[in-house]
Simulated assay, not measured.
Amino acid sequence: MNHALTTLPLLERRTLTDAAYAHLSDLLVSGRVAPGEKLSLRDVSEALGVSVMPVREAVSRLIADRALEVAPNRAVRVPVMTCSQFRELSIVRAEVEGWAAALAATRRGAAELEGIIAAEAALHRGDAGADAAEAVRLNRDFHFAIYAAAGLPTLTAMIAGLWLKAGPVINLDLRHSRDRLSAGHMLRCHAAALAAIRAGDAAAARAAIAEDITRAADFIIERGGLPRG
Rank of each mutant, 00 (worst) to 15 (best):
D218T: 15
D179I: 13
L89W: 12
I146D: 06
L62D: 00
G200K: 12
N73H: 09
R32I: 01
R77L: 08
T106P: 12
A4I: 00
R137L: 04
T82I: 11
L41N: 03
A128E: 04
I213C: 13
S30C: 03
V80C: 13
G167R: 14
R77Q: 13
P72V: 05
L194F: 14
V29K: 08
G115A: 07
A67R: 02
L39P: 00
A34S: 08
F86M: 15
M53D: 11
L164E: 00
P72Y: 14
L172A: 11
I209T: 09
A196Y: 13
V33M: 03
A119D: 09
V29M: 04
R13W: 01
G167M: 08
A133Q: 08
I116A: 12
K165L: 03
S30Y: 06
A102M: 15
S30T: 14
G224A: 10
E95L: 11
E95Q: 13
A67G: 02
I213V: 08
F219D: 14
I197P: 01
R175M: 04
A20M: 02
A118F: 13
E112S: 14
E112V: 15
D43R: 01
V70K: 10
D141S: 10
M186E: 07
E95H: 10
R137A: 09
A34C: 02
A149Q: 12
P227V: 11
D65N: 07
A19V: 00
W163S: 01
V29N: 02
E46K: 00
L39E: 01
P227C: 11
D173M: 04
L164R: 00
K38V: 02
Y147H: 07
R13N: 00
I170D: 15
V96E: 14
L172H: 04
S60F: 12
H143S: 11
A104E: 06
R223G: 15
R198P: 15
T82L: 06
N139Y: 07
G151Q: 14
R180C: 13
R77M: 06
R108Y: 14
R77V: 12
V29F: 10
D131V: 11
S25W: 01
P168N: 05
A202Q: 15
I117E: 04
D18R: 08
R180A: 02
A166V: 12
E88Q: 10
R61H: 05
A145T: 08
A19Y: 00
A105H: 06
A4N: 00
G98P: 11
R56V: 10
A104D: 04
V76P: 09
R61P: 05
R56Y: 09
G151I: 13
A20G: 03
R223N: 05
F86W: 13
A199C: 12
P168G: 03
A19R: 00
Y147N: 03
R178H: 15
M81F: 15
